[in-house]
Write a protein that binds this DNA or RNA. Structure first.
Lengths: 349, 349
DNA sequence: CGCTAGATTTGGATCGTTTTAAAAACCAGG
DNA sequence: CCTGGTTTTTAAAACGATCCAAATCTAGCG
C-alpha cells in the first residue's frame, strides 16, 4: 500500500500529477470520479494514488468548495447512557452520509456550552445538534452559533426570549403524553393516591412530565396533594435519600410516577430500606427505558424514548435541513412508548 | 454582537482589514495576539471583529500552518457506558487543550473500523485514539492510519503481526493483576473452589484476566478444574443463561471471579433463579465498577477501572506525543482498584 | 487535407489564513 | 535635514484542492 513516504512530506495531488505526467486538475477529476477523464488516464492515476499512499485532504477541498463535511454534536453529559445512545445514533447517520461528528460536552454548564460552541463553530461544521445544558439561554446560543449554521435543538427547550427572526429545528420527546400514559396506567391498576417523584423544576422536561401527570390525575378525578410532588436531583443516590419525603405527612401514596429511570431505581432502593417491597407494596414507573430497567427486580415499567433512534432522527433532520436551508423550521415531538413491566403492580388493599 | 450579515457571505479577515483600512496581515496578527501590533490598531481591529461577528476559520489556518486542531476518537461501542465515560474523559482533555474531538464508532466490526478510520484520517486529525474492535488487525489499522498520524491504542491489543517499524503508544488496564487480586480476595475469605466465569477467549482482556485468576489460584496452591472456566457472551442475558454450567458436574464452586460486571450481574440473576442467594451462599466479583455495581443487592465487589480517568490519561498521552513525535513509544498499563462490597462473602460452611 | 464536433486535458485563479522579508513610519540625536 | 535604530505595517507567496474557460487532441467527413 503506502510505500516509501515514511518521513517525507505529505503526498498531494501535485505529487500524483507529477508522477503521472498529468495536471493537478486531472488528478482532481479522478478523485471525485468525474466521467470526463479518459479510462486509461484514470487507471494510471488511481494506481499512482495507491502506490504513493495518497490521502485526501478534505479540509482543503472544503475550503475551496465552501462546503462542510462535519456535524457538531454538543451534549450536556456524554457519560449519561441516554445521551451516549443518542450520540451513537447521531454518529451512525452522520457516518453513513460520509461526514464526521465533532463532539462537545457541556457538563450541564451554560458557560462551558458557550465555550464549546465557540470552539466547534470555528471548525466550520455544516450544522449543529445541541442538547442544551439546563438554563442555557436562547440568545447566547444563537450568538455563538451564528446565523449561517443550521441548529437543531434536542430534548430541551432553550430558555429566555426566543428571537423571532431566528428559526431552528427541534426534536423533543413527548414528555407530557408519556407521563399522562404512565399515570393513567397506574390509575387503571387501581391506584388512587399517586405521587410524582423526582426531577427538578428548572428543567423543561420535568415541567412537562409533571404537567402530564396532573392532567391525567385530573381526568381521572383524583386529587394531587402538594406533598406528593417531591423534587430531587435526577440521580439514583439523591432519589434514594428523598424517598421518605413521600411518607412524611398526610395520606401516603400507593404509587409514584417517577421523573426518570434513575430516580425510579433510587426510589426502589429507598423503599426497600424502609421495608416496603417495590412492585408489590408500592407501584412505580420510570422514564427513558435504560438498559437496566428490564433487569432489575422488580423490572421497571417505564416509557421508552429510544435514544438511539432519536439520535438517528436528529441527524437525519439536520441533513435534510442542509439540503433545504430555506425550508420552514420543523418542531418534531417524538412519541414515547409505555413499556409495562413488574414494578407497576396493583395496590394491595 | 454580530450585526448585519444575516444573509451575506461569510466574513473574513479581508472584510475586517478593508473596514479598518489595514492589511490582512495586520488583522491576522491581532487574531493571534501578536505583540507586534500597535495598541490603537489592535483596539480598532478587535472592535471591528466584534462588530462584524467574525468567526475564525480554523480549517484555513490549519491548512496554511500545516497543523491540526483535532483528535480522532474511534471506539468500538459508544453506547457502552464504559466507553461513553472514556469518551467523555477524552473530550474533556481535548477540549481543555483547545482542540476538538472527531468521533467514530466501529460497532465492534473491523470493517466498519477501517471505513471510519479512513474517513476520519481525511479530516487531518493530529492524532488518533483507538479502542479496537475485536479481531481488528494491526497491519490493516496501520495502513489506514498512515505513518504520519500518531496512534494510541486503548484497552485491547491489535491482533496479527506487529510490524516492528511501526510504533504506537498504548494504554491498557492491568487485567491480569486485577483478576489476581479479586481471586486472592476470595481465597482470603476462605474459598477453595473458585471459578472463572464469562467472557470470550477471543478477546485479549479475557485471556489476561483468566491468566491472573490462574496465577492466583496456583499461588494459593488451589486446583482449577476445567469445568470451572465457563465462557459466555459478555452480556447479562447470556451470563444468566450460562449460570448452570457451573453446577453441571463435579465439585461445585463456592465462588466465581467474573469477566466483568455485566456478567457478574447476569450470574447473580442466574443464581437467584436456582435458589442460591448471591452474596450469602455464593460469592462473586466483577470487573469495571459500573454505576450499578454499588446499587444492586447484594452490592458487587469489583475492580474499578475509572474509565473517565483513563480517557483523560489517553488524551494526555496523545497530546504529549504530539509535542514529542520522535520520543520512544509508551506502553502504559493502568492499575485497577479492588472495591470490596457485599457480594464477596465468606463461604457458608 | 482542412474543418468541426466531441472528448480530454490544463493553466491559473481561488477559498481564508499565515508567514517572511522587506518597506514604511516614527523618533531621537547630531 | 539627515542618520540609524525602533516600531508597525504590508505585499505576496504559500497551504492543497477545485473550478472555469480555454486549449489540445481525436476522429469523422466532404
Amino acid at each position: 500500500m503506502h510505500s516509501n513516504t515514511p518521513l517525507g512530506r505529505k503526498v498531494t495531488v501535485r505529487d500524483i500529477a507529477a508522477a503521472c505526467g498529468v495536471s493537478r486538475a486531472t488528478v482532481s477529476l479522478v478523485l471525485r470520479g468525474s466521467p470526463l477523464v479518459n479510462k486509461d488516464t484514470r487507471a494510471r492515476v488511481e494506481a499512482e494514488l495507491r502506490r504513493q499512499g495518497y490521502v485526501y485532504n478534505r479540509a482543503a477541498a472544503n475550503l475551496r468548495r465552501r462546503t462542510s463535511s462535519s456535524i457538531a454534536l454538543v451534549v450536556n453529559e456524554l457519560a449519561n447512557p441516554f445521551f451516549a445512545e443518542f450520540a451513537a445514533g447521531v454518529d451512525d447517520v452522520v457516518g453513513e452520509a460520509g461526514m464526521v461528528t465533532l463532539l462537545g460536552s457541556s457538563s450541564e454548564s451554560p458557560q462551558r456550552e458557550q465555550a464549546v460552541l465557540g470552539s466547534l463553530i470555528e471548525h466550520g461544521p455544516g450544522g449543529i445538534i445541541l442538547s442544551p445544558a439546563e438554563g442555557s439561554d436562547a440568545g447566547q446560543v444563537l450568538a455563538a452559533v451564528g446565523a449561517r449554521t443550521p441548529l437543531l435543538v434536542f430534548n430541551r427547550e432553550l430558555s429566555g426570549e426566543q428571537p423571532e427572526y431566528a428559526h431552528w429545528d427541534s426534536l423533543a420527546l413527548d414528555n407530557q403524553q408519556g407521563a399522562r400514559e404512565a399515570t393513567a396506567h397506574l390509575v387503571a391498576q387501581g391506584h388512587r393516591r399517586i405521587a410524582f417523584f423526582g426531577g427538578h423544576g428548572g428543567s423543561s422536561s420535568c415541567r412537562q412530565r409533571r404537567a402530564g401527570y396532573r392532567t391525567a390525575m385530573q381526568t381521572a378525578g383524583l386529587e394531587v396533594l402538594p406533598q406528593w410532588e417531591v423534587e430531587c436531583l435526577p440521580t439514583r443516590l439523591d432519589a434514594a435519600r428523598c424517598a421518605e419525603a413521600l411518607f412524611a405527612n398526610g395520606p401516603v401514596p400507593t404509587a409514584a410516577v417517577c421523573y426518570n429511570d434513575a430516580v425510579a431505581l433510587g426510589l426502589m432502593h429507598g423503599l426497600a430500606e424502609r421495608g416496603l417491597a417495590p412492585g408489590r407494596e408500592f407501584a412505580l414507573t420510570g422514564f427513558d427505558d435504560i438498559a437496566e430497567a428490564a433487569l432489575t427486580t422488580p423490572s421497571l415499567t417505564t416509557l421508552a424514548a429510544a435514544p438511539r433512534a432519536r439520535g438517528r432522527q436528529a441527524a437525519q433532520m439536520l441533513l435534510e435541513r442542509l439540503r433545504a436551508p430555506e425550508a420552514e423550521a420543523r418542531r418534531i415531538v417524538a412519541p414515547v412508548r409505555l413499556v409495562i413491566r413488574a414494578s407497576s403492580c396493583a395496590p394491595l388493599a
